[in-house]
Amino acid sequence: MRLLINKIFLALSILSAGVGLAFLAWILITLFMKGLSSFHFSLFLNDLIEGGLRNLIVGQMILAGLASLIGIPLGMTAGIYIQEYGQGRYAALIRDLSDIMMSAPSIVIGAFVYAIVVVPMGGTSGFAGAIALAIMMIPVVINTTDSMLSLVPRELREAGIALGASKYKVIIDIVIKAAKVGIMTGILLAFARIIGETAPLLFTSETSNYFSLNLGESFPSLTVSIYDLANEPEESSRDLAWAASFILTVLVLIINLTGRFITRNKK
C-alpha cells in the first residue's frame, strides 16, 4: 500500500511536471514557428512605417541602454552602501524596501513616471521611458551587488585595510574586483528583464513608427509596438508582431545565457 501510494504520487508529480513543460514548449514552438515564418533580414533595414522593425529595435536598445546608464551606477553604489558602509537598521530598511520595489507592479511605476515626468514635460518622451525602466532596474542591481559583495571574504578587506588603503580604495580595487563576475551576471539579467518590459513604457515613451534619436519626443519601442500590432485586425500586422516577439525573445535568451555562461566559466 505504501509503495502504491508512493508510485501514484511520483507519477502525479512527473505528470504535472510534464504538463507544465508541455505548455512552455508549446509557447516556444509557436513563437519560433510564427516568428521564423515572418522573419526576414529586411526587417532590420526598414522602419515600422515601411513594414520593418529597425527603428523599434534600435529604440528599445536605446531605452534599455539609457536606463542601464542611470540604473547601474545608482544601484551599485546603493548596494555598496548596504553591504560595506551601512550599519544596523537603516541599511536593513533600504535592503527590505529595495526587495519590495523589485516586485512592485511595473504598470504602477509607469503611472508614477507619467505623473512626475510626462505631465510636467507636456508629453511622452524617450527620456520618461528610460527613467521608468531605470526605476525597474535599480532594485535588481542593488540586490545583486548586495548579495555578491557579501560573498567576498572578510579577510580580503582586512588585508587591504592593513596595507594602509583607504576604505573606498579597498572597495573599488579589491572587493568589487573580487565580485566582478557575479555583479556582471546580475546586471546582464537585469538588462534582459527590462528590455522585455512593456507596461512601464505604455504611457511614458509610447512608441513611434519612425526612426528617432530624439529623446524629447515619443520614442520607438519594440514591446509597445508588439502590443499595438498584435491587436490590429490585419494579418500582416500580426505577423510583424510575431517576428518582433521572436527577435525580442531570442535577444532576451541570448543575454540570459551569456550571463549564465560567464558565471559557469568562473566556477
Binding site: 522585455g196 514591446t223 502590443y227 516577439s245 532576451v252 535568451l253 540570459n256
Partner: peptide, 8 residues
C-alpha cells in the same frame, strides 16, 4: 522561461 517577456 521565467525570463520570457510577458507580452509573448
Amino acid at each position: 522561461l521565467a525570463a520570457i517577456p510577458s507580452i509573448i
